[in-house]
């Protein structure tokens, strides 16, 4: 296959970037999208041009590191998959593929296609946990969790924190990410003790990071590699409103 790539090149956060065109002539359809980038980088290096920087690690769709906006969609044309799970057989000979980094104020570009997603870590730090110290847990089977509940919590917990939801959303909203964690812990009995503060604090942090609001377009869920449902956003809204109306926190 012959592929024309238009790739966002940007030296660092302080420099303006632009799309640069590259031609690749020997692309196999069994290659993964990132392997195609390896081939590009190999040829750039041999020519003496600096290779394209992009985030990637596990290359099996679970670590959430890879983050390319491919032909107008996060993680490319395939749904339910990350960039590293995309294969060239999803494209045709002669295609032009535009590759950009995630775009959001809260995800500044570090270099080329690489962005900083520390905002997500800070949101989890604000409340995405159950406060239990090591060693103080009771026997695991003392907490009965019906299978349906465990399954629903698992659906939410499957989030890989890649940021495709933010990248896809026209408002760069992080609601699906925040909802997935709030919802997982709101469903499970272990999360009950802190469920009010958790919703309040995580939403406050999400806002402080500068993410947009939810317009319920559903783009996040469609583009989510783990297909996390909008039900969780509704649950987050419920949790948040319930917390705001009934928590003891009168200072905001």
């Amino acid at each position: 296959m012959k592929i024309t790539l238009k790739v966002w090149r940007q030296k660092n956060i302080n420099t303006a970037g632009k799309l640069v065109e590259y031609q690749l002539d020997n692309v196999s359809e069994d290659m993964s999208f990132l392997e195609m980038f390896d081939v590009l980088n190999d040829s750039l290096t041999r020519k003496g041009e600096e290779p394209v920087a992009f985030d990637h690690d596990c290359r099996e769709g679970i670590c959430g590191t890879c983050s390319m906006y491919i032909n107008g969609r996060p993680h490319g044309p395939q749904t339910g998959a990350t960039t590293c799970q995309l294969h060239m057989r999803s494209f045709n000979d002669g295609d032009t593929i535009v590759v950009e980094p995630w775009r959001a104020r809260s995800f500044p570009v570090i270099k080329d296609l690489m962005v900083d997603r520390l905002a997500f870590d800070r949101i989890i730090q604000s409340g995405g946990y159950v406060s239990v110290n090591t060693g103080s847990a009771r026997d695991a089977n003392e907490i009965l969790i019906p299978r349906t509940i465990a399954d629903e919590a698992m659906d939410a917990a499957a989030c890989i924190g890649c940021g495709a939801c933010v990248a896809a959303c026209k408002n760069a909203s992080a609601m699906l990410f925040v909802a997935a964690k709030v919802s997982q812990l709101a469903i499970l009995p272990q999360g009950q003790a802190e469920h009010k503060e958790r919703a309040e604090r995580m939403v406050a942090q999400m806002d402080a990071e500068g993410f947009g609001a939810c317009s319920f377009t559903g783009a996040c869920s469609v583009e989510c590699p783990k297909s996390i449902s909008l039900d969780h956003i509704a649950r987050l809204n419920r949790e948040y409103l319930g917390a705001k109306l009934t928590s003891d926190n009168i200072n905001g």
Binding site: N71, G72, R73, R105, A168, A219
Partner: peptide, 15 residues
């Protein structure tokens, strides 16, 4: 929340 827009975006694919 998105000061720099995408050069190429295909929102009709997901919403």
């Amino acid at each position: 929340s998105r000061p720099i827009k995408y050069a190429y975006s295909k929102p009709e694919a997901n919403s």
